[in-house]
Design a protein around this nucleic acid. Structure first.
Length: 213
DNA sequence: CAGTCGATTCACT
DNA sequence: GTGAATCGACTGA
Protein backbone atom coordinates (compact mmCIF):
# COMPACT_ATOMS: atom_id res chain seq x y z
CA UNK A 1 0.00 0.00 0.00
CA UNK A 2 1.47 3.29 -1.11
CA UNK A 3 0.47 6.50 0.58
CA UNK A 4 -1.24 9.03 -1.70
CA UNK A 5 0.85 12.05 -2.68
CA UNK A 6 0.77 15.11 -0.43
CA UNK A 7 -1.30 17.74 -2.22
CA UNK A 8 0.07 20.72 -0.33
CA UNK A 9 1.39 23.39 -2.72
CA UNK A 10 5.17 23.66 -2.78
CA UNK A 11 6.03 27.05 -1.22
CA UNK A 12 8.06 29.57 -3.16
CA UNK A 13 10.87 29.16 -0.61
CA UNK A 14 11.36 25.65 -1.98
CA UNK A 15 12.67 27.17 -5.20
CA UNK A 16 14.66 29.94 -3.51
CA UNK A 17 17.70 27.69 -3.04
CA UNK A 18 20.70 26.71 -5.17
CA UNK A 19 19.45 24.92 -8.27
CA UNK A 20 21.58 21.83 -7.62
CA UNK A 21 19.74 21.41 -4.32
CA UNK A 22 16.32 21.95 -5.84
CA UNK A 23 16.67 19.69 -8.90
CA UNK A 24 16.93 16.27 -7.19
CA UNK A 25 14.36 17.40 -4.64
CA UNK A 26 11.81 17.88 -7.43
CA UNK A 27 11.70 14.16 -8.26
CA UNK A 28 8.37 12.69 -7.17
CA UNK A 29 6.66 16.08 -6.97
CA UNK A 30 3.36 16.56 -8.75
CA UNK A 31 2.65 19.11 -11.45
CA UNK A 32 -0.99 20.08 -12.00
CA UNK A 33 -1.99 21.56 -15.35
CA UNK A 34 -5.49 22.88 -15.98
CA UNK A 35 -6.58 22.35 -19.59
CA UNK A 36 -9.92 22.74 -21.41
CA UNK A 37 -10.13 18.93 -21.33
CA UNK A 38 -9.74 18.87 -17.57
CA UNK A 39 -6.79 18.68 -15.17
CA UNK A 40 -3.67 16.70 -15.98
CA UNK A 41 -1.40 15.60 -13.13
CA UNK A 42 2.19 14.53 -13.68
CA UNK A 43 4.70 13.02 -11.27
CA UNK A 44 8.22 14.21 -12.10
CA UNK A 45 10.72 11.42 -12.78
CA UNK A 46 13.59 13.18 -14.59
CA UNK A 47 15.00 16.74 -14.48
CA UNK A 48 18.11 18.71 -15.40
CA UNK A 49 19.70 21.69 -13.62
CA UNK A 50 20.94 24.78 -15.48
CA UNK A 51 22.97 27.19 -13.39
CA UNK A 52 22.99 30.72 -14.66
CA UNK A 53 26.03 32.71 -15.72
CA UNK A 54 28.63 30.04 -14.93
CA UNK A 55 27.00 27.31 -16.98
CA UNK A 56 27.87 27.19 -20.70
CA UNK A 57 24.85 24.93 -21.29
CA UNK A 58 22.39 27.48 -19.92
CA UNK A 59 20.33 29.85 -22.06
CA UNK A 60 21.33 32.54 -19.56
CA UNK A 61 25.06 32.00 -20.05
CA UNK A 62 25.40 35.01 -22.35
CA UNK A 63 23.20 37.33 -20.36
CA UNK A 64 19.64 38.53 -20.26
CA UNK A 65 17.54 38.55 -23.44
CA UNK A 66 13.85 38.77 -24.29
CA UNK A 67 13.64 35.00 -24.46
CA UNK A 68 15.29 34.13 -21.13
CA UNK A 69 14.03 37.14 -19.17
CA UNK A 70 11.91 35.01 -16.84
CA UNK A 71 15.00 33.12 -15.61
CA UNK A 72 16.25 36.35 -14.07
CA UNK A 73 13.03 36.89 -12.15
CA UNK A 74 11.61 35.39 -8.95
CA UNK A 75 11.79 31.64 -8.24
CA UNK A 76 8.81 29.36 -8.66
CA UNK A 77 7.86 30.73 -12.07
CA UNK A 78 7.85 28.86 -15.36
CA UNK A 79 10.36 29.48 -18.17
CA UNK A 80 9.16 28.06 -21.50
CA UNK A 81 11.26 28.15 -24.67
CA UNK A 82 10.66 27.12 -28.28
CA UNK A 83 13.26 25.00 -30.06
CA UNK A 84 13.98 23.06 -33.26
CA UNK A 85 11.21 25.01 -34.95
CA UNK A 86 8.63 22.65 -33.47
CA UNK A 87 8.88 22.01 -29.79
CA UNK A 88 8.51 23.64 -26.41
CA UNK A 89 10.35 22.78 -23.21
CA UNK A 90 9.58 23.99 -19.70
CA UNK A 91 11.68 24.90 -16.68
CA UNK A 92 11.02 25.93 -13.11
CA UNK A 93 13.02 29.01 -12.17
CA UNK A 94 15.15 28.77 -9.03
CA UNK A 95 16.40 31.57 -6.83
CA UNK A 96 17.62 33.87 -5.72
CA UNK A 97 16.46 36.75 -7.90
CA UNK A 98 19.20 37.89 -10.24
CA UNK A 99 20.82 34.45 -10.34
CA UNK A 100 19.35 33.00 -13.55
CA UNK A 101 18.97 29.30 -12.91
CA UNK A 102 16.30 26.76 -13.61
CA UNK A 103 15.33 23.10 -13.74
CA UNK A 104 14.32 21.58 -17.07
CA UNK A 105 11.43 19.15 -16.61
CA UNK A 106 12.52 16.21 -18.77
CA UNK A 107 10.05 13.42 -18.03
CA UNK A 108 7.22 12.28 -15.82
CA UNK A 109 4.43 9.84 -15.17
CA UNK A 110 0.86 10.91 -15.89
CA UNK A 111 -1.19 10.30 -12.75
CA UNK A 112 -4.45 11.80 -13.93
CA UNK A 113 -5.90 13.11 -17.17
CA UNK A 114 -4.22 10.57 -19.44
CA UNK A 115 -7.07 10.89 -21.93
CA UNK A 116 -6.40 14.61 -22.35
CA UNK A 117 -2.67 13.93 -22.67
CA UNK A 118 -3.17 11.21 -25.30
CA UNK A 119 -5.16 13.63 -27.47
CA UNK A 120 -2.06 15.76 -27.78
CA UNK A 121 0.42 12.89 -28.04
CA UNK A 122 -0.93 10.78 -30.89
CA UNK A 123 2.47 9.27 -31.70
CA UNK A 124 2.89 7.81 -28.21
CA UNK A 125 2.72 4.02 -28.42
CA UNK A 126 1.90 3.60 -24.73
CA UNK A 127 1.27 5.73 -21.68
CA UNK A 128 4.89 5.54 -20.50
CA UNK A 129 5.81 7.58 -23.58
CA UNK A 130 3.28 10.36 -23.01
CA UNK A 131 5.81 12.54 -21.17
CA UNK A 132 9.10 10.70 -21.80
CA UNK A 133 11.29 13.60 -22.94
CA UNK A 134 11.09 17.36 -22.34
CA UNK A 135 9.21 18.31 -25.51
CA UNK A 136 6.85 15.38 -25.11
CA UNK A 137 6.18 16.46 -21.53
CA UNK A 138 5.37 20.01 -22.62
CA UNK A 139 3.17 18.74 -25.46
CA UNK A 140 1.27 16.35 -23.19
CA UNK A 141 0.59 19.19 -20.74
CA UNK A 142 -0.35 21.69 -23.47
CA UNK A 143 2.49 24.03 -22.51
CA UNK A 144 3.76 26.70 -24.89
CA UNK A 145 5.24 30.21 -24.81
CA UNK A 146 1.92 31.65 -23.69
CA UNK A 147 2.68 30.13 -20.27
CA UNK A 148 6.16 31.69 -20.05
CA UNK A 149 6.40 33.53 -16.73
CA UNK A 150 3.46 31.75 -15.10
CA UNK A 151 3.68 31.47 -11.32
CA UNK A 152 3.64 27.79 -10.34
CA UNK A 153 3.29 28.51 -6.61
CA UNK A 154 -0.36 29.54 -6.60
CA UNK A 155 -1.68 26.30 -5.16
CA UNK A 156 -3.98 25.56 -8.08
CA UNK A 157 -5.32 29.04 -8.77
CA UNK A 158 -3.37 29.38 -12.02
CA UNK A 159 -3.09 27.23 -15.17
CA UNK A 160 -0.08 25.41 -13.76
CA UNK A 161 1.00 24.64 -10.21
CA UNK A 162 3.24 22.28 -8.32
CA UNK A 163 2.38 20.19 -5.27
CA UNK A 164 4.48 18.50 -2.61
CA UNK A 165 3.75 15.00 -3.92
CA UNK A 166 5.94 12.25 -2.45
CA UNK A 167 9.64 13.16 -2.48
CA UNK A 168 11.94 10.37 -3.60
CA UNK A 169 14.42 8.98 -1.04
CA UNK A 170 17.95 10.02 -1.96
CA UNK A 171 19.05 6.41 -2.42
CA UNK A 172 16.66 6.15 -5.37
CA UNK A 173 18.01 9.26 -7.10
CA UNK A 174 20.54 8.80 -9.89
CA UNK A 175 22.52 11.48 -11.70
CA UNK A 176 24.66 11.78 -14.82
CA UNK A 177 25.56 14.05 -17.74
CA UNK A 178 22.87 16.24 -19.21
CA UNK A 179 21.21 15.08 -22.42
CA UNK A 180 21.85 16.79 -25.76
CA UNK A 181 23.86 19.65 -24.28
CA UNK A 182 26.61 20.99 -26.55
CA UNK A 183 30.24 21.73 -25.78
CA UNK A 184 31.48 22.46 -22.28
CA UNK A 185 27.95 22.44 -20.95
CA UNK A 186 27.85 18.69 -21.42
CA UNK A 187 30.44 17.94 -18.76
CA UNK A 188 28.26 18.61 -15.72
CA UNK A 189 26.47 15.56 -14.25
CA UNK A 190 23.38 17.65 -13.57
CA UNK A 191 20.69 15.34 -14.91
CA UNK A 192 18.72 13.66 -12.13
CA UNK A 193 16.25 10.80 -12.41
CA UNK A 194 14.44 8.12 -10.40
CA UNK A 195 16.24 4.77 -10.54
CA UNK A 196 14.56 2.16 -12.77
CA UNK A 197 11.58 4.34 -13.58
CA UNK A 198 10.09 3.34 -16.96
CA UNK A 199 9.10 6.91 -17.89
CA UNK A 200 12.68 8.26 -17.81
CA UNK A 201 14.00 9.22 -21.26
CA UNK A 202 17.08 7.57 -22.80
CA UNK A 203 20.39 9.43 -22.64
CA UNK A 204 21.69 10.92 -25.88
CA UNK A 205 24.92 12.80 -26.38
CA UNK A 206 24.79 16.10 -28.23
CA UNK A 207 24.49 15.54 -32.00
CA UNK A 208 26.44 18.16 -33.94
CA UNK A 209 24.56 19.27 -37.04
CA UNK A 210 26.19 18.55 -40.35
CA UNK A 211 26.59 21.30 -42.87
CA UNK A 212 24.24 21.27 -45.82
CA UNK A 213 25.89 20.65 -49.19
C1' DC B 1 21.21 41.12 -42.41
C1' DA B 2 22.48 36.40 -43.76
C1' DG B 3 24.13 32.24 -41.69
C1' DT B 4 24.04 28.88 -38.14
C1' DC B 5 22.09 25.92 -34.91
C1' DG B 6 19.35 24.20 -31.11
C1' DA B 7 18.28 21.74 -23.26
C1' DT B 8 14.18 17.25 -29.77
C1' DT B 9 11.18 13.97 -31.91
C1' DC B 10 9.61 10.97 -35.47
C1' DA B 11 9.66 8.02 -39.54
C1' DC B 12 12.40 4.95 -41.82
C1' DT B 13 16.21 1.57 -42.94
C1' DG C 1 21.32 4.05 -36.46
C1' DT C 2 20.42 7.96 -39.70
C1' DG C 3 18.33 12.02 -41.53
C1' DA C 4 14.49 15.23 -41.99
C1' DA C 5 11.40 18.54 -40.09
C1' DT C 6 11.12 23.61 -39.20
C1' DC C 7 11.77 28.53 -37.33
C1' DG C 8 13.15 31.91 -33.94
C1' DA C 9 17.06 33.51 -31.41
C1' DC C 10 21.51 34.67 -31.49
C1' DT C 11 26.03 35.82 -33.66
C1' DG C 12 29.24 38.28 -36.11
C1' DA C 13 30.21 41.03 -40.07
Amino acid sequence: MIAPPDRTPLPRAFFDRPVLEVAPDLLGRVLVRTTPDGPIELRLTEVEAYDGPNDPGSHAYRGRTARNDVMFGPPGHVYVYFTYGMWHCMNLVCGPVGRPSGVLLRAGEILMGADAARKRRLSARNDKELAKGPARLATALDVDRSLDGTDACTGGAGPLSILTGTPVPSDQVRNGPRTGVAGDGGVHPWRFWIANDPTVSPYRAHAPKRRRS
